[in-house]
């Protein structure tokens, strides 16, 4: 039983990390209908720049909370800038192109960011200096750290914030309008280019925060780490329903839990024939089953959705 609760905790935290990445992913995804392969790489830039800034700030003798705050702020600004730049240079000219064209651009941008990062921060696996002392609590027989709790909380807070932004602010209205029909939104006086740029800015800032949390939690950053994270976020976003913010959260959590429980229990259930090596197989099978039953994802809406 202890083990089971621990697995739930593991899945919840892993899922929150996926959700953190997926939140930004789904925003961009929703507004442009674009599989932004470069989103994971923004997470990577967040982690690597955060690490560099953290080391610099600590080296300058700043106390940890301030150094951490500065690192997060710096990473958010850098990623935000990169996101807006990316949108302006690479994606905006393709607004009217055939739908798969931006996908190829996204792959190109992803390669550019990866090797740009490699030139700046090398291709080593960089370790976080041992500055974060996490406290471990025993909850119902499971080990839970303060960092894990803060990851889950951050994901929830950001989700709530995004929901508020989209549902209750003028900007959110503009975003939803652009999402539904950019042309009509433009006719209604909405500067759709700016709305899309802001969406990229917010999505990229979220990616930076996700990167910082990944860095703090796993203690490692690497120029190629974005690919896997992006892939998982993509999966989570689709599972929850493309463009849906609560869907990204739910999809992320679900994916994390499935992976955790599949790793933990499938080996026993199948008598050792399928072990933890089939973790992703089970995750994808659940995804396929969900999509067969609900072709628009768990919380996605079918209205106006033809793709």
């Amino acid at each position: 039983m202890d083990i089971f609760i621990q697995q739930l905790v593991n899945g919840l935290v892993l899922g929150s990390i996926y959700a953190l990445v997926a939140l930004g992913y789904t925003m961009v995804y929703g507004i442009l209908g674009l599989i932004n392969f470069a989103h994971g790489d923004l997470v990577m830039v967040g982690a690597l720049s955060g690490l560099a800034l953290l080391k610099g700030a600590l080296g300058a003798g700043l106390p940890l909370p301030i150094a951490l705050g500065l690192a997060a702020l710096g990473a958010v600004c850098l990623c935000g800038a990169l996101g807006v730049l990316m949108e302006r240079i690479a994606y905006r000219p393709l607004r009217r192109a055939p739908k798969l064209a931006p996908l190829i651009t996204a792959i190109g941008v992803s390669i550019l960011i990866e090797y740009g990062a490699a030139m700046i921060w090398s291709k080593q696996y960089l370790a976080l200096p041992p500055v974060i002392q996490s406290t471990t609590w025993q909850v119902a027989g499971a080990a839970v750290t303060d960092l894990q709790v803060s990851i889950v909380l951050l994901a929830l807070v950001l989700m709530a914030g995004l929901l508020w932004l989209i549902r209750a602010t003028p900007l959110g209205v503009a975003m939803r309008a652009t999402e539904q029909n950019a042309e009509v939104a433009g006719l209604m006086g909405i500067d759709t280019h700016r709305v899309i740029a802001i969406t990229f800015l917010i999505g990229s800032a979220l990616a930076a925060l996700a990167g910082i949390m990944v860095l703090l939690y796993y203690g490692v950053a690497h120029y190629f780490m974005g690919f896997m994270l992006g892939l998982k976020a993509f999966t989570a976003a689709v599972l929850g329903g493309i463009g849906s913010v609560p869907g990204a959260m739910l999809g992320g959590l679900l994916l994390g839990l499935i992976e955790s429980l599949a790793s933990g229990y499938v080996g026993d259930l199948t008598g050792g024939v399928f072990g933890s090596n089939y973790r992703d197989v089970f995750a994808f099978i659940v995804l396929i089953v969900v999509l067969v039953l609900r072709p628009v994802g768990l919380l996605g809406t079918a209205s106006g959705e033809r793709a």
């Binding site: 697995q7 780490m225 790793s263 933890s276």
Partner: peptide
């Protein structure tokens, strides 16, 4: 006998097991 991949960073599930 557990397995992960050369791209993973989260091993909590197999370690818990």
């Amino acid at each position: 006998r557990e397995h992960t991949t050369d791209k993973d960073t989260d091993f909590k599930a197999i370690l818990t097991s």
